[in-house]
Computed example of a mutant assay.
Amino acid sequence: MSLRLAYETKLGKAYNGDSLELLDSLEDNSVNLVMTSPPFALLRQKSYGNKVGDDYIEWLTHFAIKVKEKLTEDGSFVLDLGGAYERGVPVRSLYNYKVLIKFVEEIGFHLAEEFFWYNSSKLPSPIEWVNKRKIRAKDSVNTVWWFSKSTNPKADVRNVLAPYSDRMQKLLKDSKKYYDAKERPSGHDISEGFNKDNGGAIPSNLLQIPNSESNSKYLRYCKELKITGHPARFPGKLPEFFIKFLTDPGDTVLDIFGGSNTTGEMAELHDRRWLSCDLDNEYVAASAFRFLNNTIEAKEVYDRILNEQYVNLGDFTLV
């Protein structure tokens, strides 16, 4: 399949085809953030395609090598990987950790920080070990590796501050009543500046984001047009966190396994340029729904893209 531009918006472009070909077409040092969630190394084959074991790691490595070339020196590569089990036994696969070690030790990425995405709405799985035999707990956490090209990637945690807890809000209103400043047992003195309002709390590397989307415009249009939506969408708040954390307005964000193009939608929302690519033309066509605001036009756009016609969404009713 040859790479083709399927549609574009004011800030972004969505491609149908092999993202290795898209990566080859980009200038070196031109992408600020690659944010993606590839098909996981699951034992059960999925409709969107997936490899397993060492084959999966080698397959993903081909992309990572090219990603590193295209990133700016202060750029980042954020990779969301779900957990998996070994075949036929209740023992966890180490594939996501092998990916981490290979990317750092062989390709030359740096592990800027490891994140863990806790999805409280995830269904119990795998069925054999969790539901039937009841010998394992529900797998609800993905590993999210934040790789950087250099040891000093662009990042500003002030852009992703979390809301203060109720107790902290009370402390800010009346610090003398709710907080007795003193030296901690560890020897740290946090009396200075602890009760200062910085606009929010520093977030942790445990991202608690339920993937419970049920009534989004994307799914609504899919339902109305009797189209199967992408089965493995990540919630918008996941790419949104890293886009705000690791890029500035005007920077370029790339998703090499675009799926329903959640990353592109979040990048557009926050004034970043974006590129997205997926092998499946039906998924690419449906992903345009994220940028439209009219069911009739959504059907027209979907049909045109499905027939491999380029569409400029600026000619339609946009969000």
Rank of each mutant, 00 (worst) to 15 (best):
S175P: 15
T36C: 15
F63T: 00
P163A: 10
D18V: 04
V160L: 09
A137W: 06
I65M: 06
M168D: 14
F245Q: 04
D166K: 15
D251K: 12
F63W: 05
N293M: 04
R272V: 08
E114V: 10
R184V: 06
L60V: 02
E73A: 08
R92W: 02
E224P: 05
F242W: 06
P163K: 08
V141N: 06
K226T: 14
E86N: 12
F194M: 10
N195S: 15
L5E: 10
F103W: 07
L171S: 08
Y118I: 03
E183P: 03
G250S: 13
V89G: 00
W129V: 13
P126C: 07
L100Q: 04
K173W: 05
Y218S: 09
N294I: 12
D315L: 09
A288W: 06
F242L: 12
F242A: 10
S214W: 04
S125K: 14
L219F: 03
H270Y: 13
G53M: 07
L172M: 13
V31G: 04
G53N: 05
T151N: 14
F291V: 13
A6C: 02
I256A: 07
M1N: 03
K134D: 09
K68F: 14
L313S: 02
K177F: 04
S47P: 03
N261Q: 10
N312C: 10
L172G: 03
P249Q: 01
G187N: 11
F109W: 02
A298K: 10
Y178R: 02
Q309E: 15
S175A: 13
K70I: 15
I57Q: 00
N96C: 09
L22R: 09
P90E: 10
D197Q: 07
I209E: 03
N281K: 03
F241W: 00
M35Y: 14
V141L: 10
K226F: 12
D174P: 06
F40E: 02
E213H: 05
N307M: 05
E282W: 14
R136G: 02
N131K: 14
G108N: 07
Y15S: 02
F103K: 01
R272P: 01
S37I: 07
D74E: 11
Y164L: 13
N215M: 08
E224M: 10
L71F: 08
L318P: 06
A201R: 11
E268W: 13
G314L: 14
A232R: 00
D189R: 11
G200Y: 08
D180V: 12
I227Y: 06
N294G: 11
K122D: 04
L246G: 00
C222N: 15
K237T: 09
F77S: 03
K66F: 08
V99L: 13
F77G: 03
D251V: 14
E58Y: 09
A112V: 05
Q309N: 15
L33W: 00
N312Y: 04
K10P: 02
K182W: 00
